[in-house]
């Protein structure tokens, strides 16, 4: 179980923030005609992050708003290329997809399952074989042929969680979405995440709930203004984070 599933070394991500960002052609041309080049300010969202996640390990990422948590997840998910540094991630990466992203409110639950699973790159046959298990876990039996707009928000997030976990990912990315659903489902999804670790699935969890992070994660990365302030076991890092806030 010592194989790495995510290996990030010296990752930097730079955003170019234009001081006056031209949003229209007109502004852009006026700028250029006046002979001004656009003034950009570099903003480094990640500054030299190193992180190794083994198979079956779950790592929490915590930090204040704007610390770089979401950017780091984007780099891991392969959505964003780092400005500098290397990232390798092995296997299928499944992010939990929330309402508004891969879901269409006009489509039924079943149609949304098809859409969502194909977003993760699955073929029709694979989707069909997992369909029953997805519905089962999401507890949506009688509603699965209703349009999603008639669902409660808890039902939608149950469906999202069920799809992302039922496809047997190698890396599961959870971005602050465990807070939804009732107590029963919360417990059920936590159990499932804990069960994943035994199957060798790596989990990356971003959360502001210290309780979730503590119960689910082996190690925690504390980000502060784009740098890794601390990396270690849950208790020590959470203590440090709480001290930062005090």
């Amino acid at each position: 179980m010592n194989k790495l599933s995510v290996d990030i070394s010296e990752v930097f991500v730079k955003y170019r923030l234009a001081r006056e960002k031209p949003k229209t052609f007109q502004e852009y041309f006026i700028h250029r005609v006046k002979g001004k080049s656009i003034a950009y300010e570099d903003f480094w969202a990640l500054k030299g992050i190193n992180l190794q996640v083994r198979k079956g390990e779950s790592v929490g990422i915590i930090g204040h708003n704007g610390a770089g948590k979401s950017t780091l997840l984007k780099v891991i998910a392969g959505v964003m290329k780092p400005t500098q540094g290397n990232i390798t991630a092995c296997g299928l990466i499944a992010p939990l997809i929330e309402l508004g992203a891969g879901f269409d409110p006009e489509l039924t639950g079943k149609e949304n399952i098809n859409l969502n699973a194909s977003i993760l790159g699955f073929s029709r046959k694979e989707i069909d074989s997992k369909f029953n298990a997805i519905v089962e876990f999401a507890e949506l039996h009688e509603f699965i042929h209703c349009p999603l707009k008639s669902y409660s928000s808890g039902m939608v997030s149950r469906l999202g969680f069920s799809i992302a976990t039922e496809v047997n990912p190698d890396i599961l990315i959870v971005d602050e979405v465990l807070a939804v659903g009732d107590e029963m489902f919360k417990r059920k999804s936590k159990d499932r995440i804990l069960g994943f670790k035994e199957k060798g699935v790596s989990i990356l969890l971003v959360s502001h709930s210290m309780e979730d992070v503590q119960t689910l994660c082996d190690n925690i990365l504390l980000l502060d203004h784009g740098t890794a302030k601390m990396y270690g076991d849950s208790e020590t890092v959470i203590d440090e984070y709480l001290k930062m806030n005090a």
Binding site: D104, E106, E111, G121
Partner: peptide, 21 residues
């Protein structure tokens, strides 16, 4: 080509959603 199932689903969604109501 690998995501052809997604392509199919996106096309189906577009047509279904447009005329559903």
């Amino acid at each position: 080509l690998r995501y052809k199932e997604l392509l199919r689903n996106l096309v189906v969604r577009d047509i279904k959603v447009r005329y559903k109501r």
